[in-house]
């Protein structure tokens, strides 16, 4: 078997907001086609870690290596890096002044320089894929939360990223809409997309995750395959966390 390609490596990452130290010496590795799920209580630093990976937050020190290249905010063109690392947000952050299709084709046209025709073709394909083939010309305000999040996923995919980051993608959804978004993410994972997912959906972590990372108070407490983490957690804190939510 060939060695899997390493998509993300994080070494000794530290991050503070003012006096508040939110990430301590984080080490993380994400291989190609892996779905890595970050779990932990609110405030454990998992979202901050995710946001450091596409440089919406800047680390204080440590290394972030994306596809073999160590990326530094002051020497790298972060816009280029971000094109490879798509992100889906808790609150969707769709562009309200653009239609569903407009949201999806904006960056491919403006950033990648795709022709409008090409972008529309690809945009429609992606919207069909996430089950929104009948919503091209609708404005986001007319969509349900689940539909909005699927548009957001299509929008990120339109840049043809190598890695997708999901920051609590279902936390802002009504319970009955969570399933459709998780289903879309599951399909994406099965197609081989490299994904890092911050979520409170333990069912998803167990079923779709290849690797689960439990964080607490800015540190990685324990990580492993889903079965091991959920069935035989080694750390007391992991056990306590899982007992509290399951």
């Amino acid at each position: 078997m060939t060695e899997p390609r390493e998509m993300i490596r994080v070494e000794k990452l530290n991050k503070s907001f003012g006096d508040l130290h939110v990430l301590y010496d984080i080490d993380l590795k994400v291989n190609e086609s892996d779905v890595v799920v970050l779990i932990g209580a609110s405030g454990s630093g998992k979202s901050t870690l995710l946001r450091c990976l596409n440089f919406l937050e800047f680390k204080d020190d440590g290394k972030i290596i994306i596809e073999g290249e160590q990326v530094e905010a002051d020497t790298h063109d972060l816009n280029k890096v971000r094109q490879k690392v798509g992100m889906v947000f808790q609150h969707f952050n769709l562009f309200p002044h653009k239609t569903v299709l407009g949201n999806v084709i904006e960056a491919p046209i403006q950033v990648k320089g795709l022709s409008k025709k090409e972008a529309i073709k690809e945009g429609k394909r992606l919207l069909d894929k996430v089950g929104l083939g009948d919503k091209y010309d609708v404005y986001p305000s007319r969509l349900s939360g689940g539909q909005k999040q699927r548009v957001a996923i299509a929008r990120a995919l339109a840049m043809q990223p190598d890695i997708m980051l999901f920051d609590e993608p279902t936390s802002a959804l009504d319970p009955e809409l969570v399933g459709e978004v998780l289903e879309t993410m599951k399909e994406l994972g099965e197609e081989g997309m490299t994904m890092v997912v911050v979520t409170h959906e333990m069912g998803f972590a167990r079923e779709v995750g290849d690797w689960v990372v439990y964080m607490n108070e800015g540190r990685i407490v324990e990580e492993g395959k889903p079965d091991q983490i959920f069935d035989q957690p080694k750390e007391e804190r992991t056990k306590a966390f899982l007992d509290s939510i399951l």
Partner: peptide, 14 residues
């Protein structure tokens, strides 16, 4: 909202 800027930046827009 800041989320609008973040979404655009995350798509590689400068």
């Amino acid at each position: 909202t800041k989320g609008q800027t973040e979404a655009a930046r995350s798509l590689g827009m400068n």
